[in-house]
């Protein structure tokens, strides 16, 4: 018993040691870079309540935009995937053009195009609404492809087995197809949510006061580039790291499917 305990303790200690070493190397590199570029970090601007409040507001806005876009882009992605496997030619073509265009052009272009031209034409002025729409249309195309890949990877024998067992078409969908699709898609879908959070930063281009825009404003006012953007990185990590852990959890949980 003692032998086993020692081995486990040893492994845990080794892991901690290695993690600490990595942290030291990375932080050390950043610190030396700061020194060599004659940059002294000064975070006293954070003592100004207005800046802290704005940052908090921006953080909440980013969370809000991301959640809303996640929901909407999922819907768009599902509809597009269904269009792509539909028997109706027009729907298939429409979905293909949408996906190719969106995935083939940068988000920055789509933001300007949709907000200033299409948004104005159809009266979508409110920045939050416009931002969520633009981001959802963008991410929806990627989600559609993830879904399409999952649908194609479904084993046809499973569907036949459902038939053989006596399930109706809707029962097959509910008890076999959808659960298997979910298992296959959830890990990459979670990863896509992480992309949504990071891509939302580009909405600062239309002055939507999410986290990045607030950071730009504070940076312009305080003339501090590095402190602001380092903090920005940390704040985004606060969002993306948990998502990443969730994604790994899903990957593990649904690994039986393989």
């Amino acid at each position: 018993m003692i032998k086993i305990k020692n081995k486990r303790m040893r492994n845990i200690l080794l892991s901690i040691l290695n993690a600490a070493l990595v942290a030291v190397v990375i932080i050390g590199f950043i610190w030396v870079s700061l020194l060599l570029s004659n940059t002294a970090l000064n975070f006293t601007y954070l003592s100004t309540a207005a800046y802290r409040n704005n940052l908090w507001g921006g953080f909440l806005m980013t969370v809000g935009i991301s959640l809303a876009s996640l929901a909407l882009s999922l819907i768009i992605g599902i509809i597009t995937a269904l269009f792509k496997i539909s028997k109706v030619k027009f729907l298939r073509y429409f979905a293909t053009v949408y996906v190719e265009f969106i995935r083939g052009t940068p988000l920055i272009m789509q933001i300007f195009l949709f907000y200033y031209i299409i948004g104005t034409a159809w009266g979508i002025d409110q920045k939050f609404v416009a931002g969520v729409l633009i981001l959802s249309i963008f991410e929806g195309a990627y989600i559609a492809e993830i879904l399409r890949g999952s649908i194609l990877s479904l084993d046809s024998t499973q569907i036949e087995a459902a038939k053989a067992v006596g399930l109706t078409k809707s029962q097959t969908l509910k008890y076999v197809t959808l659960p298997q699709l979910t298992a296959r898609t959830l890990p990459s879908l979670t990863g896509q949510f992480s992309s949504i959070v990071k891509d939302s930063s580009l909405l600062s281009l239309i002055a939507l006061t999410e986290l990045t825009q607030v950071t730009r404003e504070i940076s312009a006012n305080t003339f501090l580039l590095f402190e602001n953007y380092l903090l920005l990185g940390v704040l985004y990590l606060l969002l993306t790291l948990p998502i990443s852990m969730l994604s790994k959890y899903f990957e593990k949980r649904y690994s039986y499917a393989n």
Partner: peptide, 20 residues
């Protein structure tokens, strides 16, 4: 068809069990 199938039992060569 569904009613017909329900009264029979079928075993596939492989991959018949629901993997999830």
């Amino acid at each position: 068809a569904v009613n017909y199938r329900r009264q029979l039992g079928y075993v596939f060569q492989n991959g018949g069990l629901f993997s999830h």
